[in-house]
C-alpha cells in the first residue's frame, strides 16, 4: 500500500478518493468520483489507474434494493452503449480535500448538464444573467 507523503499515513482509496468532489483546473465542478479503475500486469500488484465519474458508475457500488433501483433507472434513461467518463490518475493534481485536476473539464463528462443547458434551461429567458 502506498503512503501519503503529506500526512505520513496510509493512503486509503475509500476515504481519500471515492465520493470526493472533482473540480477541473479552473475550479469548475466535474462531478464526484463514483468509482475507480484498477489495472495490473500478470503477477504484479493492482494499481489505481483512473477515476470514473458518472452517476451510472455509482450503480455497481450500491448494494441491495437501492442499488438495483439506481441501476435499472439509469439504464432506462441513457443510450445502451454509454460508458462512464474515465479520468487518468496522472491528471489529478491533488486528492484531498477536493480532487483537483490539472486539465479542463474532461470530454464526455457533464452530459446531462450540457443537454439540459442546450435544450431546456438555456432556452428560458434570463438564463444568462
Amino acid at each position: 500500500m502506498s503512503r501519503d507523503q503529506a500526512h505520513g499515513d496510509v493512503f486509503r482509496i475509500g476515504f481519500t478518493v471515492l465520493d470526493r468532489q472533482i473540480v477541473d483546473r479552473d475550479g469548475q465542478y466535474v462531478g464526484k468520483t463514483d468509482d475507480v479503475e484498477f489495472s495490473w500486469e500478470e503477477g504484479g500488484p493492482p494499481t489505481m489507474t483512473a477515476l470514473l465519474t458518472d452517476s451510472a458508475a455509482l450503480g455497481p457500488r450500491l448494494t441491495g434494493p437501492l442499488g438495483r433501483l439506481w441501476r435499472t433507472m439509469l439504464n432506462r434513461l441513457r443510450p445502451s452503449e454509454h460508458e462512464p467518463v474515465r479520468i487518468p490518475v496522472n491528471d489529478v493534481e491533488a486528492f484531498s480535500p477536493t480532487t483537483r485536476l490539472s486539465t479542463p473539464v474532461p470530454e464526455g463528462s457533464r452530459t446531462l448538464e450540457n443537454w439540459l443547458r442546450r435544450n431546456f434551461i438555456g432556452r428560458i429567458p434570463g438564463a444568462r444573467r
Binding site: Y29, G31, I121, A127, R128
Partner: peptide, 15 residues
C-alpha cells in the same frame, strides 16, 4: 451528485 450549484451563479451554468 457533484453538479455545480448556486443561486447567485447564472442559471445557464447550473442547468
Amino acid at each position: 451528485l457533484g453538479w455545480s450549484w448556486g443561486e447567485s451563479v447564472s442559471p445557464s451554468r447550473t442547468a
